[in-house]
Structure formats: C-alpha cells, structure tokens
Simulated scan of single mutants.
Amino acid sequence: LIPWLLLLEMGLYASCFVCGIVTAASLTITQGSFSGLCILYGTVNHNSSSDSLLVQTSSSPSLCYFVSAISVCVAVFCFSISLYWIYTCCLDGGVNRERLWLNVTLVVCGVFLFFLLLTGCVLKRGRDSLCDSVLHAVPNITSCEEAQSRTWISPYTGTQFYTGLYNAGTAVWVNFFFWILIGVLVVIQRGQGSEFRMTAADPLATPSETEPFFPRQARPQ
C-alpha cells in the first residue's frame, strides 16, 4: 500500500495546482477586462455627466504578470511532482524517498511559501488601495463590490473586477496554507526515517523463483 502520508501529500499537491490555476486565471481575466492594465494599487475617476467610471492610474503590467507567473510556477511544479509520484507508485512499483530529497522538498516549500506570502500581500494591499479609491470617487456606494454594477467607460469592462481580485487573493492564501501542511508532512516523514521502500509483489512469481539462489545447507544432527 502507498504510505498514507504520501497520499495526503499528493492530495495537497493537487489542491495547490488548482489554487495556482485559479489565481492566474482570475487575475488574467481581470487584467484583460481593463485592456491589459494592472489595476492593483490603481485609482478610479468618476464621470458625473455620464455616471461612468474610468481608470485614472494603474500599476505596471509586470506586477500582475509577476503574481500570475508565481502562481503558474507553483501549479506546474505541483502537476509535475504529482505525475512523478503516480508513475513511481503505479508503474515503477515502488517508492524510495531519500533524506536528501526530503530536504530538497523542504527548501522548495520554503521558497514557495515566501513567494506566496509576497503575492498574497500584493493582491491584498493592491485590492484595498483600489477599493479605497473607488469608495472615495464613486457616490452612493458603500462597498467596492457595488462598483461592479456601474458603467465603465470603453474599452474597460469592470463588471467582475472585485470578484476576480478577491478570488485570486483567496486562492493564494489557501495555497499558502496547503504548502504549510506539505512542509509539516515532509518534516514528519523525515522524523520517521530517511528512506522507505514500497514494493509490489509479483503475482506471477512461482515458488521456485522466490527461493534463495544458493540454498542454505542443512546442519548435521
């Protein structure tokens, strides 16, 4: 049987993959709604005559690209390592985790935690800064989400800008939490032993194949 700690770790990798895709997709769709502008830390202007909204300032597009790239890198890593363990467990017939690779996994975990924390803070502060501008510029609204129903001056279509940024930020923090759990699981596996081996018995093996190559001599009575 596959060790339950490894099964749990593989499940967390799959969850992190989904979170990474959700973050990158949500942010990319939101950025596309504003013709490629990165509205994190942006400001909004309200046109009273047409009762419409216009993006006054925005951040460099590279900021959104950076956040999306981190999420994609995490997703690609999780997808790759999940495929590796599936191949190892199902096709190769065994699992061999050396202490060296457990240490490498811990280092990767630490790197991803740092960048996920960074991107999570960027999304949170950037969204809050944008919402502060929206609440000050747009009359008769009490939340940033209400601005989604307002008309935006073409070519901007901000009907889902808050939802997209909120989903991206939530997925990052969920991803961050899952990587903490992965780190805990790896530490537990290091404590249980530097190596473990799982092999599947061959159902077609005959009794003669399982006997020692050099039979043990019987002791004289």
Rank of each mutant, 00 (worst) to 15 (best):
S52H: 03
Y87E: 15
F196I: 04
S58H: 08
G36K: 09
V18D: 04
G20E: 02
I86Y: 03
S68R: 09
N47H: 08
C109T: 06
V186P: 08
R127T: 15
Q31Y: 03
G183F: 01
G36Q: 14
S59T: 09
L102F: 10
S35K: 07
A171D: 05
S208M: 07
E9I: 04
I70K: 11
W152T: 10
S154T: 07
A24R: 00
T157N: 15
E146T: 02
A147L: 01
V174C: 02
I188F: 03
A171W: 01
R219Y: 13
I2Y: 07
P212F: 10
S208I: 14
W179E: 03
C121G: 03
S149V: 01
A25Q: 08
F161H: 04
S208H: 10
G126R: 06
V186L: 05
E98Y: 01
A147F: 07
G32W: 10
P3S: 09
S62T: 12
F34E: 09
Q221N: 14
G36V: 10
W101R: 05
T57E: 11
P215T: 12
F112A: 15
W101M: 04
A205R: 09
C19L: 03
Q31D: 14
Y41R: 15
S26T: 03
L7I: 09
L6F: 11
L54H: 09
I29Y: 04
D132P: 04
I39F: 08
C121S: 01
A201W: 11
S149P: 00
G183K: 00
L117M: 12
P220I: 09
D202K: 06
Q217A: 11
C64P: 11
M198G: 04
S59G: 14
P207E: 10
L91N: 10
L27F: 07
T170A: 08
A201I: 06
S49G: 02
Q56G: 14
N45Y: 09
L165R: 05
G126S: 08
C73N: 14
V44E: 11
L40E: 13
V95F: 09
V174A: 04
C78S: 13
L91F: 13
V67Q: 05
E9R: 13
P3D: 14
V18R: 10
F213S: 13
R219I: 15
S71I: 12
F17Y: 15
V55Y: 05
L37E: 11
S50W: 05
S71Y: 06
L8C: 02
T57S: 08
C16I: 00
G32Q: 10
A14Q: 13
M10Y: 01
